[in-house]
Simulated scan of single mutants.
Amino acid sequence: MKLSHLPLRLASGAFILNSGVGKLSADEGTAAWLQESATRVLPRLGDLPAEQFAKLLAAGEITLGSTLIAPFIPSRLAGLGLAAFSGCLLTMYFRTPEATQEDGIRPSASGTALAKDSWLVAIALALLIDGSGKKKKKKKN
């Protein structure tokens, strides 16, 4: 992991890890709300019991958050996981009509919390683009 990736990985990883830990104790109403939101992206998620979905989501977030924080995980791999996760979050944002203004892009007052996930996409792209950590050595003649 490059030193320049540390702030990106720690900030996003800690945020996602904390979110996952919080979902471990989701009550029935919260679990149902999370599941309903997720079905905007993947409708088949509605086939699961809401409590089971919340536990799976929590486990996924804990895994992703831990992956981002772990320095031995390559940045490109961590970035790939973050890109998939944050892409789903942005898809949910764009498929929630009340989250955007009339133009369908800019966030409404109630959509700002979802729109902030665009930062996670930007972090994922930075990790993917700059994640190889390998530099070509110049040959000295």
Rank of each mutant, 00 (worst) to 15 (best):
G104T: 09
G79C: 01
V21Y: 10
A78K: 03
D103T: 04
L82Y: 00
L24F: 12
A124Y: 00
A50V: 00
A115G: 09
G131E: 03
T112Y: 06
L68S: 05
L10I: 04
A32E: 12
D27L: 07
D130A: 12
T100L: 08
Q101C: 08
K135M: 10
S75G: 13
L57K: 00
K55L: 13
G104Q: 07
T63N: 10
A99V: 11
A83N: 02
T100F: 04
K116R: 07
G29Q: 06
F72L: 11
I105R: 01
R9E: 00
A59F: 06
L45G: 12
G133T: 05
F85M: 09
A99M: 04
K139I: 09
G60M: 03
S25P: 07
T100W: 10
A126V: 11
I123Y: 02
A58T: 04
L57G: 05
K134E: 13
N141H: 07
Q52M: 10
L114Y: 10
S75A: 15
A109L: 08
L24S: 01
K139S: 14
A83L: 15
L34P: 06
L90Q: 14
L48F: 14
G20M: 08
S118R: 03
A99H: 15
G79N: 02
I105G: 02
S25M: 11
P74Q: 15
I105D: 07
G111Y: 00
L82P: 01
D103R: 03
P97T: 08
L82E: 01
E102G: 11
L89T: 12
I16K: 01
F85P: 03
L64Y: 11
M1N: 11
S25V: 13
N18K: 15
G131P: 05
F53D: 06
F72Y: 06
L125G: 09
L34H: 00
G60W: 03
L80T: 15
A115H: 11
G87P: 05
T96L: 11
A32K: 13
L10V: 13
K134S: 12
K138I: 09
L80W: 10
L45S: 02
L34Y: 09
S25L: 12
T100S: 13
A26I: 03
L10D: 03
M1H: 14
T91E: 09
A38Q: 02
S110Y: 04
Q101A: 10
V21N: 08
D103H: 03
L45M: 14
R95S: 13
E51G: 07
L17A: 15
Q52I: 15
S12F: 03
N18H: 15
L125T: 13
T100A: 14
S110N: 05
P71S: 06
G22P: 09
R40I: 07
L89C: 14
K138G: 09
Q101H: 11
A84W: 13
I123C: 10
G87H: 05
L57D: 04
A58E: 08
A54W: 14
